[in-house]
Design a protein around this nucleic acid. Structure first.
Lengths: 199, 199
DNA sequence: CTCCAATGTGAATACTTGTTCACATATTAA
DNA sequence: TTAATATGTGAACAAGTATTCACATTGGAG
């Protein structure tokens, strides 16, 4: 009956990861401090050694996800030079993010997480807009290389890019995996390409 | 200090409408029986004269929304014969639905409402799939009329159709109206059309 | 090895949750 | 007008919420 003690840094990350998982599987209502503590094997009050309150836990989750999203953009711009190819790869990475973290991206984009909390709401909007800006930049670059039609609005196309992924994430989650998100995105990509690419 | 009494039918609808509004503005967490009762000017226990429990309230909300969604499809098929025109109109109606009911469709499609409740989860999936099937039917009809390219998968295109609307609904809600959903959809429509239509 | 700060515990806090029940009032039918 | 029924009230409920606090235990630095 020995109590295992972990250093703050480690526990903090462990808690954030568990919170992310709870949020993805059970929704915001499922993320109680009690449930969170149970899922990492400690007592609720112990969480407060690592986080000031629940707000800080949620902020950590949002931060973690923002890093993953923007990290994906960095990866594809390093892997490829061709804008349309970059977008195709980004789509695949985003799908993998969804499959890994269950439906957390769905949650991020659903806005459930911020309900009634204007401060985090703003941070969430900023995160999504940062991601959109990166996608728009890729599309703008595609226009410079004459791969994307010039009359296409990069901002509009970027939002539509999100639309390629998001509904499939929801359907995948709702159908408990029956709906194949990866396959859908694979099929939707040619449509998106047709929507923005030259000829 | 006279207590106003309404007939079951009226009160039921009033409660369902208030629940819908609470859900749209505050999220699932904001929809407590206490808050719901307060918003219609009665005491929490009085709700149980009209609904067996909270489940039944949520079911009523989902039902109301399903009727609106499928009703929109019926409207556009009566208003127009040209499939692409039908889709354009359906898009506009869906946007109006979002603007009216704040972000309830966002919520429906986000899956927040069912978290941890498999029975309603299934009903929700069925609702969305019914809507998708209607959209796919329009697209299939478009292929028969040689307005939509034959190699396009109607099911995939229907999901992408959702993707035209959904992200904009979220951004509109997150940005507190700063992001103009109607304008985005207006601009995204030519892209979607380009994606599926014959040139 | 000893001591101390860091980490975990369990009880207690005040509040909110959904729901039930006996009672009161308003509306409707006889 | 009276009686019956539908609707609303307020108190009580057990369970769950986030959070605080005094105390116990651990791991590592001296």
């Amino acid at each position: 009956m020995s109590i295992e003690k972990l250093t703050n840094e480690v526990r903090r990350e462990q808690i954030a990861r568990a919170a992310l998982h709870l949020l993805a599987t059970q929704g915001l209502n499922g993320l109680s401090m009690a449930a969170l503590a149970r899922s990492v094997g400690i007592v609720p009050s112990a969480i407060y050694r690592h986080f000031r309150n629940k707000e800080e836990v949620l902020d950590a989750v949002v931060d973690a996800l923002r890093q993953r999203l923007l990290g994906n953009v960095r990866v594809v711009t390093e892997e490829s030079d061709e804008p349309l190819d970059q977008l195709r790869r980004l789509l695949a990475l985003h799908v993998r993010l969804i499959l890994e973290h269950h439906s957390l991206p769905r949650m991020l984009f659903s806005g459930e997480i911020y309900a009634g909390h204007p401060e985090r709401k703003a941070r969430l909007l900023a995160t999504i807009q940062a991601y959109l800006a990166e996608v728009a930049a890729i599309i703008r670059n595609g226009q410079a290389q004459e791969r994307v039609r010039p009359e296409v609005s990069p901002e509009t196309a970027a939002v539509l890019f999100l639309g390629v992924i998001q509904p499939s994430a929801i359907l995948w989650h709702l159908s408990e995996g029956t709906f194949d998100a990866a396959k859908h995105v694979e099929r939707a990509w040619p449509l998106f390409r047709q929507a923005i690419a030259v000829q």
